[in-house]
């Protein structure tokens, strides 16, 4: 017996993500899905952002990690609400995990919800979590050819954050080349060069966040 089917394999995740997106819209919560390799500075970026904008915005973080609640503890130390999801070895977060995490959050009391995905440049990209934007992070201690190796993330992200720029004098990372690779895939990509360590460039990222929150509230 032949059964002709053409069904999107990710349909169940996409359906749940659409429900989450409606809910984020209803509550006017800007939701950002942070995706990078392990160690590029997602948690450090969140620590800085939560501290520096803590009086301006109400923010929370959903932390995805294969094991431990170390990152959630780091984030909670800034005073922000952090919900830890342990994927038990799993390589990405999906929309059902986000739904479960929302039980611990008051969406109506939030301006920004950050989703810190599991450190991985491939798998998280395929699983929509209902976010407004994927934010790609890349640190200058990695290869500047990451956009060529992992095109899907850089195609679909709305912003690219180049972190650890304070280390540029000591590494061979070519900022121009990384930016060119990413922009070839995605001409509308916003690129921020920052250092979470010395704070350089963070103001531009904060300005982008303020505008994104304003647009989200206007759309709610």
């Amino acid at each position: 017996m032949e059964i002709p089917v053409v069904r999107n394999v990710l349909e169940a995740n996409d359906r749940m993500a659409a429900r989450l997106r409606d809910e984020f819209k209803r509550c006017g919560v800007l939701t950002l899905n942070l995706i990078s390799s392990p160690g590029s500075g997602k948690t450090s970026l969140l620590e800085r952002t939560l501290r520096d904008l803590g009086t301006e915005f109400r923010m929370a973080v959903i932390e995805g990690d294969p094991q431990t609640d170390n990152d959630a503890r780091r984030v909670a130390a800034t005073g922000a609400v952090a919900v830890q999801i342990n994927t038990d070895g799993g390589c990405h977060l999906d929309s059902n995990m986000i739904l479960a995490a929302l039980e611990n959050l008051e969406l109506e009391q939030l301006d920004i919800l950050f989703i810190e995905n599991v450190g991985n440049l491939v798998c998280p990209v395929e699983f929509d979590c209902g976010e407004d934007a994927k934010i790609a992070l890349l640190s200058v201690t990695e290869g500047d050819d990451k956009p060529e190796k992992y095109p899907q993330l850089f195609r679909l992200a709305k912003a690219l954050i180049l972190n650890k720029t304070d280390l540029l004098p000591y590494v061979d990372f070519d900022v121009e080349s990384a930016a060119r690779g990413a922009c070839t895939l995605n001409p509308d990509l916003a690129i921020f060069q920052i250092s979470c360590r010395d704070g350089h460039g963070l103001e531009n990222w904060y300005a982008w966040l303020r505008e994104a929150v304003r647009l989200k509230k206007a759309d709610a």
Binding site: E2, I3, V5, V6, R7, V9, L10, C183, T184
Partner: peptide, 21 residues
């Protein structure tokens, strides 16, 4: 020119066809 490209196909995962008894 080096103007970049839009991807018109080559993205998406589908269950396409089944055979069964």
């Amino acid at each position: 020119k080096f103007a970049g490209f839009e991807c018109r196909a080559g993205d998406g995962i589908f269950l396409d066809h089944l055979e069964a008894e």
